[in-house]
Design a protein around this nucleic acid. Structure first.
Lengths: 109, 109
DNA sequence: CAATCAATTCGAAAATTATCGAAATAAACC
DNA sequence: GGTTTATTTCGATAATTTTCGAATTGATTG
């Protein structure tokens, strides 16, 4: 049942992705992008909607992007950001849960 | 410093839970508990397996517990920890993704 | 009650992360 | 080329998190 997914995360990458989500501002930014859907938003609009602007927003978006949760592409004089959290969150969840109970002694009874 | 914002109250809790997952050591600790399954592990065994001990481990476990990802219960002179990440991760994923595309004009376009 | 084992609290230093404003870069437009 | 708009880089400061060892608390055993 394994579907084509973003790169399998190692511990370091998974922790970095969770850490990227672990800030109220960044989580708010990402949810704004999730709401906006695949078309994405410019940095300016994103900042207005999420309530974070300027260099602070640049900083947070960079962290989300390097965690693989957001893409950025220049379009004219704006940078369009879009969430790619959809698959990524499933991947992170899998990373955490797949080995569930692997250490238990009596898997077959 | 924490800034007063019109953020939904759940945002704070969700960000705290993601932040709890956003450390290599804590993620490693939690995965060790997930592997161990519902019976859980004592702090001592957990520390040996995950490679984190003493006050540092206490600190990390406290963060995981207050994020609702781990339970603790005293049993004799040990504290038994167990992962409750199973449902919790789904909840976090939902928090992030449920409003997907809500802001788009043409939801099925 | 003293000794022991398991885990926590405390206090402090080191490391990382967050925030902001000013200056710099990049693209579009005149 | 020079101006306007959009975003980023830089540098400094504030805030938070991590880590460790020593002292402490709680529970069990003799």
């Amino acid at each position: 049942m394994k579907m084509e997914s973003p790169a399998a995360p190692d511990l370091t990458r998974a922790a970095a992705a969770f850490a990227a989500l672990g800030s109220e501002q960044r989580l708010s930014v990402l949810r704004t992008l999730v709401r906006a859907g695949p078309e994405g938003l410019s940095i300016g609009t994103l900042g207005d909607r999420a309530g974070v602007t300027g260099s602070t927003l640049t900083h947070h978006v960079k962290i989300l992007a390097s965690a693989g949760l957001v893409t950025q592409a220049r379009q004219g004089r704006s940078i369009i950001c879009a969430a790619v959290a959809f698959d990524e969150v499933q991947t992170l969840s899998d990373f955490l849960l797949t080995e569930c109970c692997a250490d238990t002694e009596t898997p077959h009874g």
